[in-house]
Amino acid sequence: MLELPLVKGDPFHHVMEAILDLSDVAHVVCTTRGLNLLAVDTKHLAIVSLLFPAEDFKGYTCDEYISIGIPIRDLVNAIRCGDDKDTITLKVGEENFGTITLSFVSPEKNTVDYEFRLVDAKLERFRLPDRHFLRSKYQGSVKMPSVEFRRICKCLSNFGDEYGVISVTDEDLTYFAKGTDGDVYVEYKQQEEDTTIFKIDVREPVRLAFNPKYLNTFAKVFTLSGQVKLFLSKTHPLMVECKIGQKGRIRCFVAPKVEP
């Protein structure tokens, strides 16, 4: 049995809204320890992974291992219909396994229940590379304010949705996007005095081409946290990470684009 309390505008809802146009299904694994969500875009170029430990989820109840495929559009449509003040609970029970119930309770105790079919109740358990593996593959990381990151992603995506480049050296971080009528460059210099807000950490310079559309999609999710951290590799997907709550985190991966 699973009971997942949700609030309109909470990180879970935010992630669902963000990946609405990228993927049809969110693969969710719940255990007594917490929730893991994984969604892959239809072209297999971007992945979002969300980890919510049970202690960060007030009212979270799960007494067994549950692996479900949630139809993202159905869930988002239902949440959008709810009121901001409603208490929302996502339920998967033993009797109705194969369906999901989303219950909305207003402050006046009026209720609305949505019931929809899970995409696939018996999904395989996905394994993402662990933190140590990932760290060994990345030659550089950059910590920066998430609001600033979102602004850049929006700017790059507006300019050129298809081709962008992130370059990092121990002195600066640059973003570049190629548009149809011109190019855009954004440059950040490492400030020696204050590394709490912006910090570059590189073993060797990295240059990575990517599709700005995906980063722009994910960037709004990262504003749930004050800081965002980018991990760059010459050969592996770009990873962007932010912390949610005490121990939760969101990670997005964007496949590198082969340079034209």
């Binding site: 892959v40 395989e124 996905f126 394994r127 993402l128 590379p129 592996h236 496949a255």
Partner: peptide, 14 residues
């Protein structure tokens, strides 16, 4: 729907 193979391929890089 993705499979573990899709994910492995994704993370293996290019």
């Amino acid at each position: 729907s993705p499979t573990q193979k899709t994910l492995d391929r994704f993370f293996r890089g290019h």
